[in-house]
Write a protein that binds this DNA or RNA. Structure first.
Length: 491
RNA sequence: GCCCCAGUAGCUCAGGGGAUAGAGCACCGGCCUCCGGAGCCGGGAGCGCAGGUUCGAAUCCUGCCUGGGGCGCCA
């Protein structure tokens, strides 16, 4: 039980006993630490509905609580503020209990089964700055919910399906036509070793998507390849497995540098088998309808203050979209007992999630007792205030960003003459930890939904409100440990 | 055109009905002959504009200005 909830309980009772609604008993941390530790402003709010002077209400409440052992001084001040100072005995007791509790007094809530979806990297594509905030925020949300006692699964949810996969297959076929994977007569077995590195995939990916823009024959081939992949053509499946494996390895490497871990490495491909039956059912149930050749779900509500465009379920060429897979993913997660799904995804996609959630409700895929939430995040911006771009105009690669922060962390360590007498391995780990702390603290310091300017010098500073300072001096973590070491005390 | 988010100190940001609007950085002035100073104490300076609601507005409402973002076959 926290101090605030204990105190609020006391004042709720008092308000009720004095003849007022108990909701006026909310106690908060004092805004005037020179006057008190806590305060309750309920008397001011109650004055109007009860047509009584606020000071008199406050006085009534105070007279009911002032003899409580938890409280030392309770006074009415100003227009009707109730100022509260705790008794030393109560405060000391409370602190003793916190210290004795490995959870520091944080209560465990009733557990719900939660999926946090906070990854979103694409196969064969380099991760970029856009993946930073979801990773940091999502990981934090996951750990917090877990600490509170929920049953939480972190799902990276890869972009590992759809047209880009067809593009890649065809591009590779043109480059390496002799590979067994492209022999339509073959059904394996195929080599265990991947025919390409992730670097090679990342190189040909943009080439393939450019060709897709320009060459209609390539478009047809890519579409055809996707269909065959979905239908399970052995060579393509084997090739896709390789793409998947080498990509996941590279992606994990980046997340590891940030201490971000996923329980599930699912993706769009995970729900591949659910797509057709789901669409058929939605069509049969009259939920989905045709519009301009495409399949949509009307998600507008009568009392909508704004236009909510329909949820596009299938393109006019009949192909599935990210929307299809997102909806099927909700179905899949719920079928596994998920009670809450939290998406930590760029806030710019909020309309998509609004539509998605409505479609899920309307179709009965998610009933009201399932929580669906888009915890949208803002963007990481460059010095110009716009989403971080490289000189070439592309988004800055995430590994490059982390590299830069680690380099800066190394400089900081040298500037401050720190960690000099460690082995190379330990030093590298210190550098990594300092860099990760810089990035995470710099990010989490900002509101989740607002954009922020990435300032490497500020984030890596060893003084001020920064990650490195938190590691060292904030709650004096490593410094305290060093001190205790010198006096030979075990932690 | 419609919708969403933001505009607070020189800078980056908190605070989202209550008392004197906070932090970090930067700037100025102090503090150590035991601890890791990556520190501590103090100082100046601010709520985009105009109305409204309220005993009380940075906070709620309306309008406007400025910036960013979004608006069915991309994710």
């Amino acid at each position: 039980m926290s101090l605030l909830s204990t105190l609020t309980g006391i004042f709720e009772e008092a308000f009720e006993e004095a003849g007022f609604d108990r909701d006026y008993g909310i106690v908060e941390i004092s805004q005037r630490p020179d006057l008190s530790q806590f305060q309750c402003n309920g008397a001011l709010a109650a004055a109007k509905p009860y047509k009584k002077p606020p000071r008199s209400i406050a006085q009534d409440v105070v007279s009911l609580v002032e003899s409580r052992p938890e409280l030392d001084v309770v006074t009415v001040e100003g227009p009707g503020f109730i100022n509260i100072v705790l008794s030393d005995a109560f405060l000391g007791n409370h602190i003793d209990r916190m210290i004795a509790d490995p959870r520091l007094g944080v209560p465990r809530v009733s557990s719900r089964k939660v999926v946090v979806d906070y990854g979103g990297p694409n196969i064969a594509k380099e991760m970029h700055v856009g993946h930073l905030r979801p990773a940091i925020i999502g990981e934090s949300v996951k750990r917090l919910l877990r600490f509170l006692g929920h049953d939480v699964i972190g799902d990276v949810h890869l972009g590992d399906w759809g047209l880009p996969m067809g593009q890649l297959i065809c591009e590779l076929e043109d480059r390496m036509p002799d590979l067994l994977y492209f022999d339509s007569a073959s059904s394996g077995p195929y080599p265990a070793e991947p025919p390409v590195t992730v670097e090679y995939l990342q190189e040909i990916y943009p080439v393939a998507s450019r060709r897709f823009q320009e060459d209609s024959r390539f478009v047809d081939r890519a579409r055809c390849a996707v269909v065959e992949l979905q239908e399970g053509r052995p060579g393509y499946r084997a090739l896709w497995q390789h793409f998947h494996r080498v990509s996941v390895e590279a992606i994990k490497e980046v997340y590891n540098r940030l201490d971000v871990e996923f329980d599930l490495w699912n993706g769009e491909s995970t729900v591949n088998q659910r797509l057709d039956p789901m669409v058929a059912r939605l069509l049969a149930g009259g939920i989905a309808e045709e519009s301009d050749g495409a399949l949509i779900i009307d998600v507008a509500e009568l009392d909508d203050p704004k236009d909510v465009p329909p949820f596009l379920l299938l393109k006019s060429d009949g192909a599935a979209l990210y929307t299809t897979s997102d909806l099927a993913t909700i179905e899949d997660r719920i079928s596994r007992g998920t009670e809450v799904i939290i998406y930590v995804v760029d806030v710019r996609q909020s309309l998509h999630f609004e539509q998605l959630f409505r479609a899920a409700r309307r179709s009965g895929i998610a009933l009201e007792d399932v929580g669906l939430e888009h915890a949208g995040n803002g963007t990481v911006n460059g010095p110009d205030g716009k989403p971080f771009k490289t000189r070439e105009g592309g988004l800055l690669r995430l590994r490059e960003l982390i590299d830069r922060v680690e380099e800066r962390a190394e400089e900081r360590l040298q500037e401050n003459d720190l960690a000099q007498n460690y082995s190379d391995d330990e030093r590298a780990e210190i550098r990594r930890a300092v860099a990760a702390a810089s990035l995470k603290f710099g990010d989490l310091q900002n509101h989740r939904t607002s954009n922020y300017v990435f300032d490497i010098d500020r984030f890596t500073a060893f003084e001020g409100k920064t990650g490195p300072y938190l590691l060292y001096g904030g709650p004096n973590y490593s410094r305290d440990r060093a001190l205790l070491r010198t006096v030979d005390v075990d932690l």
